[in-house]
Design a protein around this nucleic acid. Structure first.
Length: 291
DNA sequence: GTCCAGGGATTCA
DNA sequence: TGAATCCATGGA
């Protein structure tokens, strides 16, 4: 029996925080819900008292693609129970309760984060939207237009100038070269699921425009590597402020601390620190701006 | 106008 | 190893 709507019964799931926390870049807030594209399907999500309500344009006989993406079956209580019991983590957990990690498509995740370097999240969203409009397959939706994420083959056929026109600047040659490497099977993104974490990481950082941070984002957000711990400017700042009394700590020391302090779900804890740091500082800025 | 953004690659000490 | 610099672009 197929249907265009489903409800996932799930507790402690903050949909808005999850979709807007800078792990995925294609969700748009529309009225009381969020519109996006998952696995080549337009979908609208809405927070309801019992969990999450979802709607598609075409009838679905199997909703596993969305359950997997949203990770509605993750054992949230067990995950946050592994967080270190210290004041910073307690504060982040309290402020971000219900924040979840998604399980994204590897190519979309990889391409998105290649475009992310030294960009603000709103700008990344703009770049990804332009990529979709110009290189993605149009999808049927009940409201306006939507596009599938561009395939590696399509981007591999694009020119650097066309990619630069999507406002991604110096990241364009990196995205193009990576798209060509993946499209030509020089690197098999699906195959990375069956190799060790360190092998997958080594393969990812071989790609142009992919360093340790972006590789960790892809491992965490697409491959579900629990201990992957991306360190960007926000996380670095948060760690220095919260755990090192505001001292500027060396990169090596940050790496070591991240690896040893946060337990088996370090990546999850990292996302809490990231979101906590961003939302907290934004409100601080607002307060400072309005005397 | 200035600073900064979910960094990476290259160069130089 | 580690610091410095450049790379586009746009929001604040």
């Amino acid at each position: 029996m197929s249907s265009k709507a489903i409800q996932f019964a799930v507790r402690d799931y903050d949909l808005a925080a999850t979709l807007a926390s800078g792990q995925a870049f294609r969700w748009r807030e529309c009225g009381s819900g969020w519109d996006g594209v998952v696995a080549g399907r337009w979908v609208s999500l809405r927070q309801i008292p019992s969990g999450i309500a979802a709607e598609t344009h075409e009838p679905q006989s199997d909703w596993r693609w969305l359950a997997e993406y949203l990770q509605v079956n993750a054992d949230y209580g067990a995950i946050i129970a592994t967080f270190p019991d210290d004041p910073p983590m307690r504060a982040a957990l309290k402020a971000c309760r219900g924040l979840r990690l998604l399980r994204q498509d590897p190519w979309e995740c990889l391409a998105s984060f290649i475009c992310s370097s030294t960009k603000q999240i709103v700008q990344i969203q703009q770049i990804i939207a332009l990529l979709g409009e110009r290189f993605g397959e149009p999808l049927s939706t009940p409201v306006g237009h939507a596009f599938a994420f561009p395939t590696t083959e399509r981007l591999a056929r694009a020119s650097e100038a066309e990619l630069r026109a999507c406002k991604m600047g110096f990241r364009a040659p990196n995205l193009l070269a990576t798209a060509r490497l993946v499209a030509s099977r020089h690197l098999d993104l699906e195959g990375l699921r069956s190799v060790s974490c360190s092998e997958a990481r080594a393969a990812l950082v071989e790609l142009p425009g992919v360093g340790p941070k972006i590789a960790d984002c892809v491992l965490l957000f697409a491959y579900g590597v629990q201990e992957a711990f991306p360190v960007d400017v926000w996380v670095r700042r948060a760690l220095c402020e919260l755990y090192f009394r505001g001292r500027e700590v060396s990169h090596a020391k940050i790496e070591e601390f991240a690896r040893t302090h946060f337990g088996p779900w370090a990546g999850y804890a990292q996302q809490y620190l990231f979101h906590f740091s961003r939302t907290k500082s934004r409100s601080t800025v607002n307060l400072a701006g309005k005397p």
